[in-house]
Design a protein around this nucleic acid. Structure first.
Lengths: 340, 340
DNA sequence: AAACGTTCGGGAAACGTTTCCAGAACCTTG
DNA sequence: CAAGGTTCTGGAAACGTTTCCCGAACGTTT
């Protein structure tokens, strides 16, 4: 309480140690100095409990030690996985994570990009669900390094970490064909989203490549990528078709679909096999465990963070793009069953 | 690209507008000025795309517009709910969220508390899973407002938002007794954690209050609050007891327990009713849907954020403590079944 | 038209650091 | 011991704002 009066600054320390401010600063930053000076400054600092003021350091050093991650909806386990991976890279490198929720609103994403100019953060990782013209404009003149997790319609001045999700879905098609499925439906999210279009393409590719003799495309679109939308959309699909397998554009939709199947007194996988995409931890939680296409969210998060730090360390470096290959994780929801 | 040379500062703007720096600053902050001056500064600012530099503002204003949330493990849906709620309060108030992962390490929590002195945030919300002496020491001399989500062993100079989780568990006991259960077990998390002890107490209270004629306490402790630990612990419990109901200290443990029950070829709720705690969104995802004690995570997050902002706005305010009452949400995992 | 009150604008200090520069102190070497 | 080179130090500028203070300009009132 004696020191409640005033926060000690480096001036306090320098005065107490009987040295100049510059010497105090040097010692505190570990630069070379006479042993005598070092110990005087150190004890003075300890005595008053000196802690440098971040804002002042930021102003001087022109860096903040913070990076931002802008994400559509932190409730989606895919993004949680990315957050974890990003934090794991950031922490050891002395960076803090600022989290932004965009609620899938392109406007607020652009807002965040624009806000980078205030330099409250040294860089940004963003995973936009749709990429608009406005995004591309801001990417072009961004004032801090940006890494996009996702796919861009055209090259831009940002690093990207993308995944061949189309191929992932086609892996799922092949797997289901091998299980003997002949009426393989696709339960998509919004088609105007980047993941939506890619995954749909993968479905079509997969069908032509692996199931030339199967029933044609059976596509149902959900309102968004949530569980409830999955249930609703699966209900609609079942009202008009009788698929023996459904590939869902993500795990949440798949879980919703499983609930709808159950509500129709059908069984997974006996009547209908279900496959999700993203391989979130939910896939192992539900029963039957969900076969899912892993898009390696953690790995993408890690790579994005690494790409960003690399670029922050040397902004003259050219932007890099990395692509990750998907994998199919087969679980009970699509296991071999007696059929036909 | 013409402006690639140099970031415009307020000096640039003032020069271009032909006014002093102070006038430029005043206009840009919406203070009074002659219409003429206002428009000159505004157009100059727009022309060069001036954006104020946060670090400089922070240094001058002694605030950052950031608050931190320190959380054990962002993968736990309870914390995700809190993050969402906190963000919902912060955003409209112009604050950003800095997320810290502590990995349930008391040391790193204390580290974060200590780091508050660097004033990189204006306040902190923390949800410690254990509260050590070191925590209390740091709370006592914290240099920025802190709100704890959880219960403290003794009053401290921090706001708190707690929940009567013991009562919540005893609600669950009563409910199960009403369902006709007589051998009600409790699957706890680590007993040295704050939630662990409180919930165990609720279990014992509930038994004596609502089930005087039931079998005595059947307690099994899990290594942590995760799904896998739940499966393992439930396996151990089933190896030595035959409960007809199990209350789990959180939803993750409950989901793990359900998997173990299934692995033993038993059915939920026919053979064993299961109840979780936290009422995360997972409760509605699994099958059968999980009965769970809601501890109102979102509400607690919101309240914590509000308490914090209140205290930041006026630090002379005395700290407040709020307690939230739990509710039981009955779902299929504990529905009435034919029994004895 | 003088006296007063109000609004407005500019200079300069301040926020707390880091770093450049030049001079002082030290050590080495011939 | 002088000359040379290192190492160390203190002064001062700089980072980009906001704000205090005071004088200038303006408008009102007698």
């Amino acid at each position: 309480m004696a020191d409640a009066s005033k926060r000690p600054t480096i001036v306090t320390v320098a005065g107490l140690a009987g040295v100049s401010i510059s010497s105090a600063s040097r010692v505190l930053n570990g630069h070379s100095a006479r042993p005598d000076t070092i110990s005087r400054v150190r004890t003075a600092a300890a005595q008053v409990g000196y802690v440098p003021h971040m804002a002042a350091q930021n102003l001087k050093s022109r860096r903040t030690g913070q990076i931002a991650f802008a994400v559509e909806n932190i409730a989606n386990p895919t993004y949680v996985a990315m957050v974890q991976a990003i934090e794991d890279v950031l922490g050891p490198n002395g960076y803090r994570l600022v989290l932004h929720s965009t609620k899938a609103d392109a406007g607020s994403e652009v807002e965040i990009l624009r806000d980078l100019r205030r330099r409250y953060v040294d860089g940004l990782v963003i995973s936009p669900i749709r990429v608009t013209e406005a995004h591309l404009r801001e990417f072009a003149q961004t004032s801090a390094p940006v890494v996009v997790i996702g796919t861009l319609p055209e090259p831009a001045n940002v690093g990207t970490v993308s995944v061949n999700s189309a191929h992932g879905v086609s892996l799922a098609v092949r797997h289901l064909v091998e299980q003997g499925c002949r009426r393989i439906a696709f339960l998509n999210g919004p088609v105007d989203s980047v993941p939506g279009t890619a995954r749909l393409r993968g479905y079509h590719n997969g069908l032509t490549a692996h199931a030339p003799d199967a029933t044609g495309a059976l596509v149902q679109t959900a309102a968004d990528f949530s569980v409830d939308s999955g249930t609703a959309a699966m209900g609609q699909l079942l009202a008009r078709e009788t698929p023996d397998a459904v590939i869902c554009a993500n795990d949440l939709l798949a879980i919703g679909a499983m609930q709808a199947v159950r509500a129709h007194s059908l069984s997974v996988p006996d009547h209908i096999a279900i496959v999700g995409v993203d391989d979130t931890y939910l896939a192992e939680l539900v029963h039957p465990a969900l076969t899912s296409v892993s898009l390696h969210a953690r790995k993408r998060g890690r790579l994005a963070a690494e790409l960003l730090l690399e670029r922050i360390a040397d902004p003259t470096l050219p932007v890099r793009s990395i692509t990750v290959e998907p994998d199919l994780l087969i679980r009970a929801s699509s296991r071999p069953v007696s059929r036909g």
